[in-house]
Simulated scan of single mutants.
Amino acid sequence: MDIEELLPQDPEGKKEEPKKQSPLVSLEKDLELYSDSIKEVSIAILNEGISTHPIFVAHQHTVTIGEMILDRTELNTDWTIQASTLDEFVQKGIINPEKKALFLKSYKKPQEFMCVFVIVPEGANFIYYPYKK
């Protein structure tokens, strides 16, 4: 079955509005650009013993978690990145303490992947994006 078969059809022949480009397209472009800088911060968080689980927050608005490391207005990009940790996410209630073990099971090697908490108007979610080789 094709995905199109699952989508609502337009029986009245009305033209569909053009689809908006997903914000994740611009996020991927920015993460490629930011990759080396984010990896450098991740390694610093690990080496300085701040956390064994760095988390980066990608957003286009103002958020109150983590510390800003890459400002979209200064860099003329679409996304701002803030550095945080698993501990801060638990302290702020973003990750429920009872779900911490479940989160850790899915957490990927921070030397190879950036853990990014992406915040968009529709909601927020974690993604893992590989660092450039």
Rank of each mutant, 00 (worst) to 15 (best):
Q21T: 12
S106N: 10
S106P: 01
L46V: 04
T73Y: 12
N96E: 14
L104H: 08
I50S: 00
L27K: 03
G93K: 03
I95W: 03
H59I: 04
E32Y: 11
M114I: 09
K99D: 13
L70T: 02
H61R: 14
D30C: 06
I43E: 14
K29V: 10
V41M: 08
L33Q: 10
S42D: 06
W79L: 00
Y34N: 09
E112C: 02
Q60E: 11
L46N: 07
S35K: 07
K99V: 00
L33M: 10
V116C: 15
A83V: 07
I94C: 09
A101R: 14
K109G: 08
S37C: 05
Q21A: 09
I55K: 08
Q91D: 11
N47D: 15
P54Y: 03
N47E: 15
E74Y: 09
D71Q: 10
I38D: 02
T85P: 12
T80N: 13
D87V: 00
S51D: 11
L27S: 05
K39Y: 07
R72C: 03
E40D: 12
E32Q: 11
A58P: 13
W79Y: 05
I81Y: 08
E98K: 12
D78Y: 07
S37N: 12
N76P: 12
A58E: 01
Q91K: 11
I38M: 02
K100G: 01
L86C: 04
F117D: 08
Y107K: 05
V90C: 04
D78N: 13
S37E: 13
C115G: 04
L33I: 10
V41N: 11
K108M: 13
T62E: 14
I81Q: 07
